[in-house]
Design a protein around this nucleic acid. Structure first.
Lengths: 136, 136
DNA sequence: AATATATTGTTTGTGTGCAAATGAAGTTTG
DNA sequence: CAAACTTCATTTGCACACAAACAATATATT
């Protein structure tokens, strides 16, 4: 008879912390989902990429990034064109609306991260993020 | 111009760590999803509960727990009956198959938690889980 | 007892997230 | 050059996850 405590398992706690983070995110930045914001932020950073490559940069598989890109495109936040040298590739760029939105909300995105970690002291935040990153 | 590094944001790192955890889980315990295992484990712990109450115990909303319970019931891992005193309520219990499966995999579930935190030392694991829990 | 309020489970709609299969288009190899 | 392979985007199918609306049923208030 093994003693198993659900509340002590990292997977379960991870899920709950993520729930809290999602709630904070959608309250402070209801215009975009965390996923959509990540895609937009990365797209602005790299200027132009293909769809699958963008997915790889933010750890989304081909099926997932397709949906995210479609939703951003439908709202006019990014633009797609075909790569003339490789007609399989769909090259993506943030539109000017996308850039404006990003500039308007990036400070809020930072506040979301802060608020999520608010229960921790400054030192603990650094420590926690360091440990968390090692679990990639 | 705010300096925003996606890879340093807790939400993004949380998502990646969760991805890694999910991959470990489905490799070591492909019979159940983490969600289904959580529902089964909690159900065995509390013996009998209504569907929505079970959802509350493991932080799943009514729509989500319904799907999870339906899938477990379809596989015969739990049984449902109507509460005679309150005919709205669907009372759930783990079936004997459900209990057997749980006993057979609970040790594996513990190994999954261990493996997820493997990159950390013993002291760091305790420390990390403590900090993580404070972010509920 | 009649009305108002709350809760239970269900359904619909939207958005991730992954596996597996597919056709089109490149690249590598014999 | 042709066959084998790889990659790109797409589609389908399944599993969470939450919001909002709903009917049925309980409970509380007057």
């Amino acid at each position: 008879m093994t003693d198993y405590k659900l509340d002590d398992q990292i997977g379960f706690v991870l899920r709950r912390v993520n729930q809290r983070h999602l709630a904070i995110f959608s309250q402070l930045l209801p215009e975009l989902t965390p996923t959509q914001f990540a895609a937009l932020a990365k797209l602005i950073e790299v200027v132009e990429v293909s769809q699958n490559e963008l997915g790889r940069l933010i750890a989304m598989d081909a099926a997932t990034i397709k949906g995210v890109v479609d939703r951003l495109a439908r709202r006019g936040l990014l633009e797609a064109r075909r790569n003339p040298n490789d007609s399989r590739r769909k090259l993506l760029r943030a539109s000017s609306e996308g850039k404006v939105l990003y500039e308007n909300v990036v400070a809020t995105a930072l506040r979301i991260s802060e608020k999520t970690m608010d229960p921790l002291s400054t030192g603990e935040k650094v420590q926690f993020l360091g440990l968390l990153k090692r679990l990639w």
